[in-house]
Design a protein around this nucleic acid. Structure first.
Lengths: 203, 203
DNA sequence: AACCGTGTTGGACACTTGCGCAATAGCCAC
DNA sequence: GTGGCTATTGCGCAAGTGTCCAACACGGTT
């Protein structure tokens, strides 16, 4: 039995929870799974966690937050609003691949039943929308985009992206990931008054 | 104890399951809830149902299928493709209000874990897409719409609708239902080469 | 009216879940 | 070294789940 400091242990618990969530999904993650994942007893988890609800929410925040962080960094490095949006679309679907988007599906569904999860998924969703809205605002300020309401446009583009990805992930057919990116990018072009193909690459 | 014929009893069970699902969501629906809902014992449910998995799938099919049916009927009564689409948007969000869309969220999330649910939600999703695609095809044949690929356009419009509704239902803020309809209708206008406002009412 | 098929009961079963708690054992200060 | 603080254990608990089944009772048939 390895004795760790509270801070480290908390981190280990969160990491183990994320790993289990990736493997089994949020709804199927249990305290015993987490304990087994880090090779300790289940009681230890509860010694640091006030409830399963907030643990799942915190773990989701870490998992989904990493993707958000990665995308934010990638966008900051891009030069110019157009390049920024191209990267946004490319990394969004890649980042959400496999288990990541499944976590979002779980979070949206569990939101009704788990207050902490609802709060977190809401906050992270807004954060994604803000990443997009900020990029749009910059492009509008530069005069490269033409958009009346960056906030609303961001919600629309993000929602189309989510709606399409949802079909691709949940049903694994009908819509392939290339179409998800291309269709969303084309929608963004029309939303921002860009020439056809400037984002999607297909005129 | 009321003695019913197998067919009637099966119907009663399905109805009770739908009612419980509406109230508590798919993931939180239990055999005992269903039995209590129809005022019988829990054993009776399993006497007619092979497993919880298929019962949930069947009940979801009935609940979501009723909405689909209602929309199909309403669309058939409308005169002309434009009126048809207006009704589509109006009834989609209304029909999905409250509990109905939550069932879809549950279905999409549970799809990974419950094969029967995945099959059903996939089939119903395609059915919705086909309702839309058919209306678009008719409008294109009439020369009122301009659309290269009605199938793909239907997926895009439906996905935007789902993505926006998702935010409204799961987070209950940021996007109100009026915006969901208006934004989706405007997107459809651009997809189908219609004049601004012909579907959304806002030029 | 007796009877049997079967719809129905109500609880047992085996299992899982989140959570709490006494006992234990590792680490640091002295 | 030794003591004490506390991280950690491991099991128990109560509540929940889906599933199964012997016993029961209703209704149409004879």
């Amino acid at each position: 039995m390895v004795r760790l400091s509270p801070d480290v242990r908390r981190d280990v618990i969160l990491d183990a929870t994320v790993r289990v969530m990736r493997r089994k999904g949020m709804a199927a993650t249990t305290v015993r799974d987490i304990a087994h994942e880090m090779g300790t007893s289940s009681g230890l988890v509860h010694h640091y966690v006030e409830s399963m609800d907030v643990l799942l929410a915190d773990a989701f925040e870490r998992a989904a937050g990493e993707d958000l962080q990665a995308t934010s960094v990638a966008l900051a490095q891009a030069s110019g609003p157009v390049a920024r949006l191209r990267i946004f679309f490319a990394t969004y679907v890649r980042a959400e691949q496999d288990w990541a988007f499944q976590l979002w599906l779980d979070a949206w569904a569990e939101a009704v039943r788990r207050p902490a999860v609802r709060e977190t998924s809401h906050r992270l969703n807004v954060a994604w929308q803000q990443v997009l809205a900020t990029a749009i605002r910059e492009g509008t300020a530069d005069g490269m985009f033409s958009c009346d309401d960056p906030e609303a446009a961001a919600w629309r583009i993000l929602s189309l992206l989510d709606g399409l990805t949802l079909q691709a992930v949940a049903h694994e057919v009908d819509i392939d990931r290339t179409s998800v990116i291309r269709w969303s990018a084309r929608f963004a072009e029309s939303e921002l008054g860009l020439a056809a193909g400037s984002l999607s690459g297909v005129p």
